[in-house]
């Protein structure tokens, strides 16, 4: 204690500990560094959701901006009046258009996620089991399309699927069909588009999970007499569950709100909630309604997003 100079109160070991604790806790440099990205994300990612929620409770007005204020000053009573309008939410459940759109978005997203998984799993498995020399090249080949423009890749499918497009031209020339197939502007085209654009997002986490798989476990299973398929279902598959969950969430969540794919490949009867929100905003200019649609969509996605967050480990290393 003699080394610490000065007043008696600082000589007290407890107080000294507290003082040190305070000094440690208020590492100003560190706090500043942490606060920069936190404040940016809070303002431009978190607060916007509150604004959306607020506006979803207001009424559409022909004004600039086109919605009513929640708080109004009542001059006669001299009090502030809070005007909440639940009408947008009520309308969401009254008009079957919205319920149908939510339901069909979730259905389309779920089915395409499952199909993507079925296509991606053997690919990820083949890459993970390939010779280490080729592994990086194969992985780069998976990632490369992901680096090229998403919009242009969807556009490429328009040329592929349309009535006088590449696929129909090929099948007609070979003679497999005598009438062009109507794939473009149907739900099938939307499925193909979603599977195609999100395939790399599924392969990467699956690959990460499968690459880490301990080869001796597979050998042990084989030694104990398990067939190749049995080994796969009882050893490989369960061990790759984290990769499956991460991959499925990476596909499912953005697919639910997808706009570009149904707008370009889907038909006029392809109902997806992302498109409904877009039309509500850009065509009807009904900002409060678009906000209510967004809030309900977010509620549907909270659970999958939490699930995704919990599987987040070392996913980013593959980009």
């Amino acid at each position: 204690m003699t080394t610490s100079s000065g007043a008696a109160w600082i000589a007290s070991p407890t107080l000294k500990k507290v003082a040190q604790g305070i000094k440690k806790k208020f590492n100003w440099g560190r706090a500043l560094v942490i606060s920069i990205p936190t404040i940016w994300l809070a303002i431009f990612f978190l607060v916007p959701f509150l604004v959306v929620f607020k506006i979803s409770l207001s009424t559409t007005e022909i004004a600039q901006p086109p919605y009513s204020a929640l708080f109004a000053w009542d001059a006669e009573e001299a009090i502030a009046v809070l005007r909440l309008n639940l009408g947008n939410y009520l309308f969401l459940f009254e008009d079957t258009l919205y319920i149908d759109a939510y339901w069909s978005s979730i259905k389309i997203a779920a089915i395409s996620t499952a199909l993507t998984l079925v296509i991606a799993y053997p690919m990820a498995y083949a890459i993970a089991r390939s010779h280490p020399k080729y592994r990086m090249i194969l992985l780069a080949l998976v990632i490369l399309p992901f680096w090229t423009s998403f919009l242009l890749r969807v556009y490429a499918w328009m040329g592929f699927l349309k009535k006088d497009g590449v696929i129909n031209g090929f099948l007609l020339n070979v003679g497999i069909i005598d009438q062009p197939l109507a794939i473009m502007n149907t739900d099938t085209a939307v499925y193909i588009g979603i599977i195609y654009t999100y395939l790399p997002f599924m392969i990467l986490p699956l690959y990460t999970a499968l690459e880490k798989l301990d080869g001796t476990l597979l050998e042990a299973a084989a030694d104990l007499g398990a067939t190749a398929w049995k080994t796969f279902f009882f050893v490989t598959l369960p061990l790759s569950v984290p990769g499956i969950v991460a991959g499925c969430m990476l596909v499912f969540i953005p697919a639910v709100g997808e706009f570009v794919i149904p707008a370009l490949l889907g038909g006029s009867d392809t109902l997806m909630i992302g498109r409904v929100l877009w039309d509500e905003f850009f065509l009807n200019r009904d900002w409060p309604m678009a906000s209510a649609v967004a809030i309900v969509m977010l509620l549907f996605l909270v659970l999958p997003i939490m699930l995704f967050r919990n599987t987040q480990g070392t996913k980013g290393e593959n980009f």
């Binding site: 916007p48 959701f49 959306v52 969540i253 709100g257 906000s291 967050r309």
Partner: peptide, 21 residues
């Protein structure tokens, strides 16, 4: 949480919420 959520957030929601902000 704020770093992970934008990775999967549907773009229509991000776009709308930022515009309203």
């Amino acid at each position: 949480g704020m770093v992970t959520a934008p990775l999967v957030m549907p773009e229509v929601i991000t776009g709308l919420s930022l515009l309203l902000l």
